[in-house]
Amino acid sequence: MSERDDQEREFDLRWAEEAAHKEPSARARMLAARWKENPPAPVPFRADPDPVRPRRSSWVSTAVVLGCVAGVIVLLGYLEFRAPY
């Protein structure tokens, strides 16, 4: 780009930012029209959509994982014990 193009672009950006009236986006216009006929219901800040059931204790998950690991170790030891050399 030449220096003249940079100056023209800078002028266009400055002119657009200093505009007295800025038109809202298409989405803003659509929502304004929709809400004029059917306003949205008030929603609490960051409300949960559905009540969440309590999570299981982390100790339960840890016990399940360690139990699986111990089971695999025992199974491998049993297979090694039974394997003929």
Rank of each mutant, 00 (worst) to 15 (best):
S2A: 04
E3V: 11
D6N: 14
D6S: 14
E8D: 05
R9A: 08
R9C: 09
R9H: 12
E10K: 11
D12V: 06
D12K: 09
L13T: 06
R14Y: 10
E17H: 07
E18F: 05
E18H: 09
E18N: 14
A20L: 13
K22G: 02
A26N: 06
R27Y: 02
R27W: 01
A28D: 07
R29C: 06
M30P: 00
A32K: 13
A33F: 11
R34T: 04
K36T: 05
E37S: 13
E37Y: 05
E37I: 02
N38I: 04
P39N: 08
P39W: 01
P40Y: 00
V43T: 14
F45G: 01
P49T: 01
D50N: 06
D50G: 01
R53T: 05
R53A: 09
R55I: 07
S57V: 06
S57E: 05
W59Y: 11
W59S: 15
V60Y: 04
V60E: 03
S61I: 02
S61A: 05
T62Y: 09
T62S: 08
A63G: 08
V64N: 01
V64W: 07
G67R: 01
V69P: 00
G71E: 02
I73P: 00
Y78L: 15
L79W: 09
F81S: 09
A83Q: 12
P84L: 09
